[in-house]
Computed example of a mutant assay.
Amino acid sequence: MIEGRFVSYLRVSTKRQGDSGLGLEAQRKAVNDFLSGGRWLLVTELVEVESGKRADRPKLTEALRLCRLHNATLVIAKLDRLSRDAHFLLGLQRAGVRFVAADMPEANEMVVGIMAVVAQAERKMISARTKAALAAAKERGVKLGGPTHHLPKQAGRAAQASAAVRAVRAQDRAADLAQDIAELRAGGATSLRKIAAGLDARGLSTARGSAWTAAAVSRILSRLDA
Rank of each mutant, 00 (worst) to 15 (best):
52 G>W: 00
52 G>K: 03
52 G>S: 06
53 K>P: 00
54 R>G: 07
54 R>V: 09
54 R>L: 04
55 A>P: 08
56 D>N: 10
56 D>A: 06
56 D>I: 00
56 D>Y: 00
57 R>I: 14
58 P>A: 12
59 K>N: 04
60 L>G: 09
61 T>V: 08
61 T>Y: 00
62 E>I: 03
62 E>M: 11
62 E>D: 06
63 A>D: 01
65 R>Y: 06
65 R>T: 11
66 L>S: 01
67 C>Y: 02
67 C>A: 08
67 C>P: 02
70 H>I: 11
70 H>R: 10
71 N>R: 14
71 N>V: 02
71 N>D: 11
73 T>W: 05
73 T>I: 13
73 T>P: 11
74 L>S: 08
74 L>I: 11
75 V>R: 06
75 V>E: 01
76 I>A: 01
77 A>G: 05
77 A>Q: 02
78 K>W: 09
78 K>G: 00
78 K>Q: 10
79 L>R: 12
79 L>W: 08
80 D>T: 05
80 D>C: 01
81 R>K: 05
81 R>Y: 07
82 L>V: 15
82 L>A: 09
82 L>R: 10
83 S>W: 10
83 S>Q: 13
84 R>L: 05
84 R>N: 07
85 D>H: 12
86 A>H: 13
86 A>M: 15
87 H>W: 13
87 H>D: 12
88 F>Y: 11
89 L>C: 08
90 L>I: 15
90 L>K: 10
91 G>H: 12
91 G>N: 08
92 L>H: 11
93 Q>S: 15
95 A>F: 03
95 A>Y: 01
98 R>I: 01
99 F>T: 03
99 F>S: 03
100 V>R: 09
101 A>P: 06
101 A>I: 04
104 M>P: 02
106 E>T: 14
106 E>L: 14
108 N>I: 14
109 E>C: 03
109 E>Q: 09
109 E>M: 13
110 M>S: 10
111 V>N: 06
111 V>F: 05
113 G>D: 01
113 G>M: 14
114 I>D: 01
115 M>K: 09
116 A>Q: 11
116 A>S: 07
116 A>K: 13
117 V>C: 01
118 V>F: 06
118 V>T: 08
119 A>F: 02
121 A>E: 10
121 A>Y: 00
121 A>H: 08
122 E>M: 05
123 R>C: 08
124 K>Y: 09
124 K>H: 02
124 K>C: 01
125 M>I: 05
126 I>S: 04
126 I>G: 00
127 S>T: 09
127 S>A: 12
128 A>Y: 00
130 T>Q: 13
130 T>K: 07
131 K>L: 07
131 K>E: 04
132 A>D: 15
133 A>E: 11
133 A>D: 15
133 A>K: 06
134 L>C: 03
134 L>R: 03
135 A>G: 08
136 A>M: 04
136 A>D: 07
137 A>Q: 02
137 A>F: 04
138 K>L: 07
138 K>Q: 14
139 E>D: 15
139 E>V: 04
140 R>Q: 15
140 R>K: 15
140 R>M: 14
140 R>H: 14
141 G>W: 04
142 V>I: 15
142 V>T: 14
143 K>I: 05
145 G>I: 06
145 G>M: 07
146 G>T: 03
146 G>I: 02
146 G>K: 10
147 P>M: 02
148 T>P: 01
148 T>E: 02
148 T>Y: 04
152 P>I: 04
153 K>V: 12
